[in-house]
Amino acid sequence: MDVRCKQLIASALVFGCLSSAHAGQYWTSSNGLPVRDNAGNCVEQGVQANTLQPGCDAMNRVILLPDASGEVGAVVVMSEGGSKTLNTAYGAAYQGTEGQLEESAASSEEVSSRFGQLLQQQPLPAETFTLRFTSGSATELTPDSLAMIPRLSASLEERKAPEIRIVGHTDRVGSLLANDRLSKARAQTVAKVLNEKGIPMDMMEVTGRGEREPEVATSDGVDEPRNRRVEISIR
């Protein structure tokens, strides 16, 4: 093994070095994939590549990321060559030169160097406000809920092309269908209140989730005030 190869092993993130690289400008692994340095850049044959080059970039790949709270979900990758489940942060699968499915972890360094700019362009997450009614009223919001309205306006102002979805929820007293209607009626009440505060009706999508999404899980038929609420989602 020559000195060049030893340097590649030291710097390559994932793949080993091959003494006979495929035809092309870059070092490639036995799968035909580019050898990358610790910054995620392709390593050019002969000379160390400092910038990303088109030929090196071309690959079909999926990289799992942790979400904003640090939690990691999972993706199932299916191909003619089988299927793989990714469930660890920066776990990645790619399509090899023969169409086969390969697994190979990326790193947070590669993701920030290669995709940092892309991730910064993501639309703002939806923001949700939960409003409640005073006891026994279908129209009068609690003082806490009324106090949320200025925050809601601020959330609208920081967004480009904001959309509002108003979603009513019920407890589990009554039938599914009746609760669908009741939850939508609650949402409509809130839409009217917001409209009176100056938000145009056509900016708001009004819907009801009925008893499907309780804040507190209960048995059917249980009267639970915390589940009788309206959520306003701004995105």
């Binding site: 970039d57 071309a58 690959m59 079909n60 790949r61 999926v62 990289i63 799992l64 990321l65 942790p66 979400d67 990691v72 979900g73 999972a74 993706v75 199932v76 990758v77 299916m78 191909s79 003619e80 699968a93 399509q95 169409g99 499915l101 993701v111 995709f115 892309l118």
Partner: peptide, 22 residues
């Protein structure tokens, strides 16, 4: 589902990045 190349990705509530060679 999302597709890139010959791969189909099924999602279990999560964040990820896709790349496609074209």
């Amino acid at each position: 589902t999302y597709n890139t190349g010959t791969m189909t990705i099924g999602v279990r509530g999560t964040e990820f990045i896709l790349e496609a060679a074209g």
